[in-house]
Amino acid sequence: MSSSALPLAGLSLDPVSDFQQLTAFPFMVNALEAGTAVAIMAGVVGWFMVLRRESFAGHTLSLMAFPGATGALLIGLPAAAGYFVFCGASALVIGLGSSGVRRHRGEESALTGVVQALGLACGFVFLSLYQGVLAGYENLLFGDFLGITRGQVLTLAIVAVLALCGFALVGRPLLFASVDETVARARGVPVRGLALAFLLVLGLAVAATAQITGVLLVFALLVAPAATAQQITCRIGASLVLSVILGVAITWAGLALAYFYSEPVGFYITTVAFTIYVIARVTRAVIDHSTLLRRRPEIAEAHA
């Protein structure tokens, strides 16, 4: 099923009528609600992921949604169940297998790489073992927002609320452990336990996000809003809120574009996210450079 088959006038310049069109069908309301829940959660989880320099682990966990989905299909379970089981299990393997100490990060990334390769191989084996025709194979990889049910919306909302409650509880020690691991440990923060717990939540968030953006493009929603927000401000609270707002805005823009035009939603989300990130990054570089020149006159002279 493709969105281009729908009788639509396309995106107009009137935002009110666009919004009315966007919310005219229940499936679209479901998609927007699910997308919002996912974007809020991804904004917070992604913010910590970027701060902790665990993008590679996040990327690997997102790819685990692929064997998760194909494996679930193979044994006749809903794809969402496969997402959560595979992403959660991989998070446990990566978390338990690595020491969690920053100077051993190389070891962790090697393990993560091995898990990623194995997961992808499993995904393709499951796919070939699955004798029937796998409908919506592309949707699995690039996202599908047409078939989201009320039940799925509810599941995603519950997962998001649980994740946010978890962050409210452990946010500060997790921040401490992420920025300043040695001192945090000396102060009695359970650095190792928090690292494992964070990877598990990351796995959950990835599994939830993959249902909207597709397996290959989860990352856009996880990394781009957080990285953009951190470029814009270095205040912790403001940066977190901004990450969530950007995530929701990017998701709505992506869903709207996918609704009015024919390309998959993941493509639009990624493109919007990437564009915003590039603008923020370039602006930050220009600002930092000019501040540096102002503070260090001798450098300015050398440039003149």
């Binding site: 452990v170 946010g171 500060r172 921040l175 401490f176 300043d180 945090a184 102060r187 470029q231 270095c234």
Partner: peptide, 22 residues
């Protein structure tokens, strides 16, 4: 690339090990 302010780092020394919302 760590985008955390010095003042927040100092503050973590005070309450970084505590659970719950700051």
């Amino acid at each position: 690339g760590i985008r955390i302010r010095g003042v927040d780092l100092v503050r973590l020394g005070l309450d970084g090990a505590r659970w719950g919302l700051p």
